[in-house]
Design a protein around this nucleic acid. Structure first.
Length: 272
DNA sequence: CGACACTCCTGATGGC
DNA sequence: TGCCATCAGGAGTGTC
């Protein structure tokens, strides 16, 4: 499932082939992608615009368009963006670029979304309502993390998945960050002491960085823009490793449920 | 406000 | 081998 590192991987690969190009035509094959908007109107608003910049906010891919609008794409569970690869099943939309380039949005489970906002103010309001701090921004310090978790009784894993606190962490990186921090996923978020906060802060940044360096995790549908797989799934320390030995103490990795998600941990290393 | 259940969706998986 | 039920989950919405 595309989380921050996967979306960042897509952004880095796609930016050089879309920035400065004009969208000749956006073809929306599955109207669900843009609900509640009208697909025809949506496409007309995008067509003819030049892509000024491709950026990322949380798990959103942000297309800045020359007409002062922003196309906000979220891949959700199974969305992928492929460049110059043709005729795949589950194709929900196709972008044809002025230089002949072709971007295909493929999404088997149809959870992905595309939205348009008309300007920087509306964009900032959109993200302001939904997303918290960017983990790689200088403002994301252990002090801020402590502030974000203060007095919350919810399990720490649920807090990490809350996009309104920290943007971009999903199920994979929450598990990996908590293992690196030697912290139990069900530990109440607000009771962490200073050294634990520091470890968690480090664990978040290290796991996201490792994910980006490995160009994302291809555990099921995630692919690079050329269809290749990321390799971070080969470096998972606990995620999806039930029954396999902990890299630190060889205790079998355990699977539990936390925040309604399948959650993996080392019962020895991650104390509650 | 917080915590949780429910919803969307479809391919993969497991039981018999 | 075939069929059916169940599972997976990001984020929005509804409920208490």
């Amino acid at each position: 499932m595309p989380e921050l590192p996967e979306v960042e991987t897509i952004r880095r690969q796609l930016a050089p082939v879309v920035e400065g190009r004009t969208v000749e035509r956006l073809e929306i094959i599955d109207p669900r992608l843009v609900t509640p908007e009208d697909p025809g109107e949506f496409a007309r608003a995008v067509d003819g615009n030049t892509v000024e910049q491709l950026s990322r906010r949380g798990k959103y891919l942000v297309w800045e368009l020359s007409g002062a609008g922003y196309l906000l794409v979220h891949l959700r569970m199974t969305g992928t963006l492929l460049y110059d690869i043709g005729d795949l099943s589950h194709t929900r939309a196709v972008i044809r670029l002025s230089d002949g380039g072709r971007i295909t949005f493929v999404d088997p489970r149809r959870f992905g979304t595309a939205q348009l906002v008309t300007g920087a103010e509306e964009r900032d309001r959109f993200f302001g309502d939904r997303l918290g701090i960017e983990p790689f921004s200088p403002e994301f310090t252990p002090e801020l993390l402590r502030e974000l978790l203060r007095s919350r009784r919810t399990p720490i894993k649920a807090a990490l998945l809350d996009q309104q606190r920290i943007a971009g962490i999903g199920n994979i990186y929450a598990d990996e960050a908590l293992f690196r921090a030697r912290m139990h996923p069900l530990h109440p978020a607000g009771t962490l002491r200073r050294p634990q906060i520091e470890r968690l802060h480090r664990g978040i940044l290290d796991s996201l960085t490792a994910g980006i360096e490995a160009r994302g995790a291809s555990i099921d549908d995630f692919r690079h823009v050329d269809g290749a797989r990321g390799s971070f799934q080969n470096e998972f320390l606990v995620h999806r490793r039930e029954g396999r030995p902990c890299s630190n103490c060889a205790t079998p990795v355990k699977k539990i449920r936390a925040a309604g998600r399948g959650t993996y941990l080392c019962p020895e290393c991650q104390s509650k």
